[in-house]
Amino acid sequence: MCSMSEEDQFYTKPTSVPLSGSEALARRSVLQMAGAATATVAIPNAFAHAHTSSASAPAATDVISLHFKVNSAEQRLAVDPRQSLLDVLRERLDLTGTKKGCNTGACGACTVHVNGQRIVSCLTLAAMHEGAEITTIEGIAKGNELHPLQAAFIEHDGLQCGYCTPGQIMSGVACISEGHAGTPEEIQRWMSGNICRCGAYPGIVAAISETAKRG
Rank of each mutant, 00 (worst) to 15 (best):
Leu123Phe: 02
Ile119Phe: 10
Ser121Asp: 08
Leu149Gly: 00
His113Pro: 02
Glu155Asn: 15
Glu155Ile: 00
Val114Thr: 08
Asn115Cys: 12
Thr136His: 00
Glu130Val: 05
Leu159Tyr: 15
Glu133Gly: 14
Ile119Met: 10
Ala152His: 05
Asn144His: 11
Ile154Asp: 09
Gly143Tyr: 10
Ala141Tyr: 08
Gly143Val: 13
Gly116Pro: 04
Ile154Trp: 08
Ala141Met: 10
Arg118Thr: 09
Ser121Pro: 02
Leu159Glu: 03
Ala126Met: 07
His129Gln: 07
Glu138Cys: 05
Val114His: 13
Ile134Gly: 01
Ile140Met: 10
Asp157Asn: 13
His129Asn: 14
Ile154Asn: 09
Gly131Tyr: 03
Lys142Ser: 15
Gln150Ser: 11
Ala132His: 12
Cys161Leu: 13
Val114Lys: 10
Leu146Phe: 11
Glu155Ala: 14
Glu145Arg: 15
Ala109Arg: 04
Ile134Glu: 12
Leu125Lys: 12
His156Ile: 01
Gly116Asp: 04
Ile134Asp: 04
Gln150Gly: 05
Ala132Glu: 08
His156Lys: 10
Cys161Trp: 02
Glu138Arg: 07
Thr136Ala: 06
Gly116His: 14
Thr135Cys: 09
His147Leu: 06
Val112Asn: 03
Ile119Arg: 08
Glu145Phe: 07
Ala152Leu: 13
Asn115Gly: 12
Phe153Gln: 00
Asp157Phe: 10
Ile137Met: 05
Ala152Ser: 14
Phe153Met: 07
Glu130Gly: 07
Val120Leu: 05
Asp157His: 13
Glu130Asp: 14
Ile134Leu: 07
Ala127Tyr: 03
His147Ser: 01
Asn144Gln: 15
Ala127Met: 04
Gly131Val: 07
Asn144Gly: 06
Ala152Cys: 10
Gln160Glu: 04
Glu145Ile: 12
Thr135Trp: 12
Leu149Asp: 00
Ile154Leu: 13
Ala109Glu: 13
Leu159His: 08
Ala127Gly: 14
Ile137Lys: 02
Gly143Cys: 11
Gln117Glu: 15
Leu149Trp: 04
Glu155Pro: 03
Leu125Glu: 00
Leu149Arg: 09
Cys122Trp: 07
